[in-house]
């Protein structure tokens, strides 16, 4: 067991826990966007930062990946932490201020209007869909492509994915609703990755499931030549 102090509370936690896990187990709330219990932590959103007391001065660490250390003193809601989180949320608002989840965070932190504005975008690049597709579904149909301001979630070559099985895990895990599942009437379903799937009705339970169809985009790609 490891002794750690979070927000003045002395806690004993098992070795190997991250600060976020230790805090949540003890009812201390730390906001997160890119964290999901079922997935490997990613430390991308920087919303889970906490202040770790250090000599000569404290430092901010991402609690979702930082392991609890013996004797560590952590503050989850200090002035340093609040300032950092405010900036993070304000930057997210630049392109995603219309997303309810972001609005909720902004309201909590008292930010009315961001100082910068970018083109509106539903996706906050938290990478949950990419990691769910890789770690849970195991097909890695999508990934983050390009970098910097051009970064986005797309299947390879930005055409309908050959590996997508139409499970819609990405739709389920997406916190902002950027990935959409569109019912365009029987028997077709279309989602964000532009893959078409035939919906088949189970003869026993009556429920619907998806069966992957051959994807014409790939045929087109090879017809073009490399």
């Amino acid at each position: 067991m490891i002794n750690i102090t979070i927000d003045g509370r002395k806690l004993q936690v098992p070795e190997g826990l991250t600060i976020l896990e230790a805090a949540r187990e003890n009812g201390i709330e730390i906001p997160t966007l890119c964290y999901h219990e079922a997935l490997e932590p990613y430390a991308a959103c920087r919303l889970c930062v906490v202040e770790l007391e250090r000599e000569p001065k404290s430092q901010l660490v991402a609690s979702c990946v930082y392991p609890c250390e013996e004797g560590a003193v952590v503050h989850t809601d200090s002035e340093m932490v609040r300032r950092s989180r405010r900036t993070t949320v304000e930057l997210l608002m630049a392109s995603s201020a219309h997303i309810p989840l972001i609005q909720e965070l902004a309201a909590q932190m008292g930010i009315a209007e961001p100082r910068v504005r970018l083109e509106s975008n539903d996706c906050i690049l938290c990478g949950l869909c990419v990691r769910a597709c890789k770690e849970i579904v195991g097909v890695s149909a999508i990934s983050l492509v390009n970098r910097g301001v051009d970064k986005k979630v797309k299947p390879p070559f930005e055409i309908a994915s050959r590996d997508c099985i139409g499970c819609s895990t990405c739709v389920f895990v997406c916190p902002t609703g950027a990935i959409k599942l569109e019912d365009i009437g029987e028997p077709k379903l279309v989602h964000h990755w532009a893959s078409d799937f035939q919906v088949v009705q189970c003869r026993i339970c009556g429920d619907h499931y998806l069966s992957p169809e051959p994807i014409t985009d790939y045929e087109r790609l090879f017809a073009e030549g490399a």
């Binding site: 990934s143 983050l144 492509v145 390879p156 070559f157 994915s161 050959r162 790609l221 490399a226």
Partner: peptide
């Protein structure tokens, strides 16, 4: 494009990951 596909298959790396690196 087909070099990326071939390399992914040879190395056993998902194409999406190879594409991600190639565009990064």
């Amino acid at each position: 494009k087909d070099a990326l596909i071939l390399v992914s298959e040879r190395l056993g790396i998902p194409l999406s990951q190879t594409y991600s690196i190639a565009t990064f």
